[in-house]
Each structure stands twice: as structure tokens, then as C-alpha cells.
Write a protein that binds this DNA or RNA. Structure first.
Lengths: 339, 339
DNA sequence: TTGAAAGCGCTAACAG
DNA sequence: CTGTTAGCGCTTTCAA
């Protein structure tokens, strides 16, 4: 019903092979016949059937992105970067969004076998070793964005270092002790941020005090970087008799925002009563004056997509691990201008 | 190299047609042979090649979503709804994101001819009449989300009514005059929100005063619903000698937030000096205490995706126009509790 | 019911 | 350089 390569061939008085060559500007064709084909194409308003091309080429020019993107600004920004780069490379983007963890595995399995995409970008999600093995053995390109695995390419920030800087900032501002609101320690980034915090504390000559450290508990399977968790954690901190911290480092902006709410609800102020710095650099942070360690989200998305597509094209097996650097964005919440 | 339908057929000792029937649980097959095939499939860990299926079936089970989603929370929420519903229907989602307007047409053309998706969802974007004609003649399903066209299915809020409610809320609170910060009037939603505002003003017995009405000007082609525009507009309003408005209705939350910033920078307060209500119900609004007309974004996305997929499946031509209702969310910015 | 065979629309190898 | 042909992996008639 719609115009195919045969129609074009007939119209141009050539074989379909020639049409194909014209489309894919092969060198195996004279400028002249190519032009003839091209005008036939234009006259017929022909456009190749992508699906047929994909089948014949064994390549879809599409990447899949598995992302828990229903959880906010951070993912949206990453996605924006991914999308941008994908478009630059004339690839399409299929979105697989994960809400529950078990879906992650489903998608990983599916994408691998369905061959609907040429490679996949796994965002902020851990990947089971057995899965890694499978992908490797199939030679199926996969890159981790905001994640890490020894055997896979990855792009992420240096969590330890960043948490270190955030904590040190507070310390340098003169706060005696810096509390921490951590995520769920079963999550790697949560652990790393904790590590950076602890290191900064110790490097400053203090000793880590677990009484002013509160991590997300409970059996849930996500990272615990939520507003509710920040709120609850801050309340615990505020309940501390006689040793209520004057400053706290929250491992995510959204936790920090929950914490700020808890603080205000007690009639206390930020940074007057407690100073706070967050982590991520989400848009909201700028609106509530939250000092934070900003991750270059869009850029990370771009780098990841670029790397993935490069890998698909060249099928190189270089070990690509990229740590991008965060940037301390100073706003009011840390009380910088008070000191 | 990877396992195909032939491998399964051989293993099960049947023809490939039979395997196909087993996969697509056709009624043309005995329970017995079906089981045999199914176990062969399991043993081989076979999964159909989606691209091949698409080509043979002339159907991709994929929808395309053309969305200017680089502009914030609103689009992300719509997308979340779309994604959710798409998954429910076991369809995949290809994201075409538009930053500049000319890209919109490119995508519309492309998706129509490439046959890579079974239908498209056009979000917050207007569509040229000629395009509509083309889609119609090809019988290619398309639905508009947060948009409108007489000949196409659409899902959107009642902008006029909602703006009317927002304005009336301020009026009922006792504010003498209500100013308005509009978008670019070349954009339909901007116009409709203006209309609702004007109507409310007039229905209250007042007359529309264009001195306290400021719309986004300039040649740009988007809707003008930005923070910067809100900021600039508010400054104009604040500059008004002797008739500075005590309350303003902004046609988008993000404009309202820009406006609030302008207000605060003058050392004035919200709602003390000027009360404000926004439109959209983005997340940020809740964090800055902005009263707003909330659009049920996720739900709108779901309805749209559901409708599109339904249309693809049944190819029905019922005229589907859905207006979903907004909800007034009262927070501090309108000074409700002062009256 | 089942198997064989003809497409789906294109790419790529192979002759010429 | 160009036309022909054999796939790509599946669905779907058409016979048997």
C-alpha cells in the first residue's frame, strides 16, 4: 500500500539494489544514476521502511534506556542528556522505566534477546553478575550511567570525593560537628557518600560519631534518598538531647529538603539553627537556597549515550570508566556568609 | 547465531508455522503440540525477534511520543503517565523530543513514513493542518495530549474554566483588582487562560484593565510560560505608579515563581504585599507554597496513551475529545488564611 | 491440526 | 557500475 523500494526502482528504471545503494550512499554507484534514483525517491516521496532495514542490517539504530525515571528531576536531566546525544547520532531512544526492582531484570533479559535495540544504557541501577556475564558473552553493548561494575563501562561522579568536599565545606565554615543523613547503606552510592563523609571527619582530626549519623533503615530495596527519609532522619537528629548538631550533610538534595522541613516545623531556622548541604544539584535546590554538590547531569547523560553508541559502532572493548566531577554550589543553607 | 524459530521447530519436531502458532497462542493448535513447542522454547531459551515480528505483522507495538520535554516537570509527569500506560499495554515507547519547533515537523513526517511506530502522541505541540490531512489519509493514529485540533483526538484541561476559577479565587478572597501575567498570546493555551481570566473579571462586575495585564511579547515561537518571562512581567507590574496590583494570576507556575522572585527582590512579600496564584501544579509549587490550578498530569498521560493504543487496536474513528478537570490547590501564596 | 511456502521491505553478496 | 538473488526471522495463507 505504501511506496516501497520496488516502486522507486521501477520509476527510476533500475534494480532495487541500485536504489538501496543510492539510499545508503554507497560508492558503488555513479553520480548520474544516483541522481536519477534520488529524484524518483523525491517524486514518490519514498522513505525506507525502518523495520525492514533493521531486519536486513541486523541493526536497529536504537538504544534502550532502562531508568527509574519516575523519581524526579535528577533522572529527567540525565535523560535529557541521553536524548540529546542520541539524536545527534541519529539513533532512536526506547525508554524502559523501572518502578520496582524486579522489572529491571525483566528488561535486561528482554532487551538482550528481543534485539530491538543495539545496546542498552542502564541508569542508576545495579546489575547482577550473572547478567553481566550474559551480556558479555553475547557481546551486547551496555553502559552504566550513575552506576558501577568492574566489568562494564560506566559514567558516574566520584561519590566519595564529593561527599568529602561537602563535609569539609561545613567543617571549614567552623561548625564543630557535622551530622550526616545517609541513604540505605545497602546501596552503593549511599555507602560511598558515607565513606567520603567519614573520611572528611577523620581527616579533620575528629572522630566519627555514630550518634549523629543516621542512615535509612528498613527492608525496602531502593536507595533511601527520599524526602520522607530525610524528614524522619532530621527529626531523629533534632531529638538528640544536648547534642543537637549545628550542621548536617544530607546525601541527597531531596533528603535535605525533607530535613529542612523538619527543622522549620520545630520553629528552627536554616542555617541559623542548623546548616545543611545536600547532594545532586536538582533544580529544587536552587529554589530553596540549598547548598549542594552538583552533578553535571545532562553532561553525564551525553557522555554515556555517546559512549554506548560509539561502542555499538566500533565494538571496541576498551575499559571505559569515567568519573565526572561535581561542583560545590554554595547557597544560603550552609550559612556561608555568616562566618 | 542466536536461536531462531527454526531451532525451536527442529527441536520440537514441528514446522515453524506451528511454533509461531504456539507463540501467539493461536487456537489452531492442540494443547499437546503446543506444550511440546513451549518446552522446546524453554529449553532453548528462545525469544522471538521483535523486529522480524514487526515486519511480518506490519505492526510494531510501539508508540512514538513527540514531546518538548526538556522544559520541565510538567512534561515529565505527562511522560510518566504515558509510560505507565504504555507498559500496561505491553507496548514500547520511543521518545522524540523537540527543542526547536522545526523539529516537530521533521518528526511528524518521519514517524508517518518510517512505520517504526504504530501511532503517535503529540504533546503540547500544535500541528499544521496539512499534516493532519496527511495523517488522516494514511489512517495513521495520532492523539494530542495537552493540545487541540478539531479533527483529532485530544486530551487536555479546560484552560478557560480553570483560569476562571483561579482568578475568581483571588477575587473572592477580597482582592480589589487581579492582575494577570500571560504567556505569548500566539499560543492557544496562553490565549485560553487569558480568556478565562478576563471572563472572571467581567463576571465579577469589573472591567478588564489592560494596564495590569502583561503578556509575553517578542518573536520567539514557544508559549512564553517561563520563569524569566514571569520575572520580567512582574517587574513591569511592580513598576506601575500608584496602581500596583495586590494580587496576580500567572498563567503558569514557573512564571509565578519568577514573579515571586521579582517581588521578593523588591523587599516585598508574598502574599503580604502581593498575592499570587499559578497554573499547572508542578512539584516546585508545593515547595514554595504557591497556590495553583493543578492539572492531573499523570492521569492525562495515561488517558492519552490508552486512547492511542485503543485506537491502534480497534482503528475506531470516534471523535474523542477529553477535557479533564483541574483542581484548585490552596497554599500560602494567595493569602487565603489572611482574609 | 499441521507443514510448506510465500511474503513483509530491505541489504548485501554475487555475477556480469 | 548495476541487476539479480538469497537471505534477515517471523506470520500467514494454502494445501494436505
Amino acid at each position: 500500500m505504501s511506496v516501497t523500494i520496488y516502486d522507486v526502482a521501477r520509476r527510476a528504471g533500475v534494480g532495487i539494489g541500485t536504489v538501496s545503494r543510492a539510499i545508503n550512499d554507497s560508492s558503488q554507484i555513479t553520480e548520474q544514476t544516483k541522481n536519477r534514483v534520488l529524484s524518483a525517491i523525491r517524486e514518490l516521496n519514498y522513505q525506507p521502511h525502518t523495520v525492514a532495514q533493521s531486519l536486513a542490517r541486523q541493526r536497529t539504530n536504537t538504544i534502550g534506556c532502562i531508568i527509574p525515571f519516575f523519581t524526579g528531576y535528577f533522572y529527567m536531566e540525565l535523560l535529557r542528556g541521553v536524548q540529546r546525544e542520541t539524536t545527534v547520532h541519529k539513533n532512536d531512544l526506547i525508554l524502559y522505566s523501572v518502578d520496582r526492582m524486579d522489572k529491571r531484570d525483566t528488561y535486561l533479559e528482554r532487551t538482550l534477546q528481543e534485539r530491538r535495540v543495539d545496546g542498552i544504557l542502564l541508569v542508576s541501577l545495579e546489575i547482577p553478575d550473572e547478567c553481566v556475564a550474559k551480556f558479555k558473552s553475547h557481546g551486547f553493548p551496555i553502559v552504566l550511567l550513575d552506576g558501577f561494575h568492574p566489568e562494564l563501562d560506566s559514567i558516574k561522579v566520584d561519590n566519595v570525593q564529593s561527599a568529602y568536599v561537602a563535609t569539609s565545606h561545613l567543617l571549614n565554615l567552623g561548625y564543630e560537628n557535622v551530622a550526616m543523613i545517609a541513604g540505605r547503606l545497602s546501596s552503593l552510592p549511599a555507602r560511598l557518600r558515607f565513606e567520603g563523609y567519614k573520611q572528611a571527619i577523620e581527616d579533620s582530626g575528629r572522630t566519627f560519631d555514630e550518634r549523629i549519623f543516621v542512615a535509612t533503615a528498613g527492608p525496602d530495596d531502593n536507595d533511601g534518598f527520599s524526602k520522607e527519609n530525610g524528614y524522619a532522619a532530621m527529626n531523629k537528629l533534632l531529638d538528640l538531647e544536648g547534642m543537637r548538631p549545628r550542621s548536617v550533610f544530607a546525601s541527597s538534595d531531596i533528603q535535605a529538603i525533607g530535613a529542612m522541613q523538619a527543622i522549620r516545623e520545630r520553629g528552627l531556622s536554616v542555617p541559623g539553627d542548623v546548616a545543611i548541604v545536600g547532594f545532586d544539584g536538582i533544580e529544587l535546590a536552587s529554589h530553596v537556597g540549598l547548598t549542594t554538590m552538583r552533578q553535571p547531569m545532562v553532561e553525564m547523560g551525553q557522555i554515556a549515550a555517546d559512549r554506548l553508541i560509539h561502542k555499538i559502532n566500533e565494538s571496541d572493548n576498551i575499559d571505559f570508566k569515567r568519573k565526572v566531577s561535581t561542583e560545590l554550589v554554595v547557597r544560603e543553607s550552609c550559612g556561608a556568609n555568616r562566618i
